[in-house]
Design a protein around this nucleic acid. Structure first.
Lengths: 117, 117
DNA sequence: CCCATCGATAACCCGATGATTATGAACGCG
DNA sequence: CGCGTTCATAATCATCGGGTTATCGATGGG
């Protein structure tokens, strides 16, 4: 695609991270995993596999994508890997929504405080 | 995927619309088109093709997906079709962010006012 | 030490999707 | 009417992405 189109507002790697984030969030299974991590806290791959309805390798791959999108972090403990949701991961998307949502309607102004990220 | 996993919080077609929305937003070209519509207002397919960097049929198809995701509306005027960004289209995604962002950190609480949608 | 468990990777299948070119349908204008 | 413009659709292709099974490395427990 034409880069000159987006360079006006979304500068540099901001759009890249948005791309990765939106892609990561665009899959239902991945969102479900993320939602579970948010609600229940740190979980092992094994536990996530048990509730995900897909195979363990698939869970690992989904977690890998979430991790590359900075939406989760991994902690190794023995032979288990514990994943947890990363709070600040959504920030670029929230900012994107703030920018375009704000131009759309004025109900997003509260989000602008997220500049600190 | 296993439906029982998401039924706790995201009920019914809410997750379906989130899926369509996130998928629609997960493509850079589509986001760029949407951003342009938000910034510049109603535009014809011709005008959007000129700035998109992809072929006209591709622009039509992207706009079709954005439309099915309720992110744009189309207005026919003679042989031209004018597309514009649809304000409330982002609402389900914003709500999703509000729910999980709220669980994540407390900085999102202001978003809960969006229940009106 | 052996074996079971856990998680990541590989090989593979197949449907979805982004992109193209070609075509067709509707409309405005001279 | 006839022609160019505008947009949507069809046919096609290549790639991406989600899913599986099989496998392998690492780790802990008996």
């Amino acid at each position: 695609m034409n880069a000159s189109m987006t360079d006006h507002i979304l500068k540099g790697d901001r759009s890249a991270s948005c791309d990765e984030l939106f892609k990561a969030l665009s899959d239902g299974t991945r969102r479900a995993l993320l939602e579970y991590l948010v609600r229940e806290g740190e979980q092992s791959v094994h536990a996530l596999t048990a509730i995900s309805g897909v195979s363990q390798p698939m869970v690992s791959r989904h977690l890998g994508k979430l991790k590359r999108a900075s939406l989760v972090t991994a902690r190794r403990a023995g032979r288990e890997t514990y994943y947890s949701a990363r709070a600040k991961g959504l920030a670029p998307v929230v900012q994107w929504m703030a920018v375009y949502g704000a131009l759309w309607s004025q109900r997003f102004t509260a989000l602008e405080e997220l500049d600190a990220y």
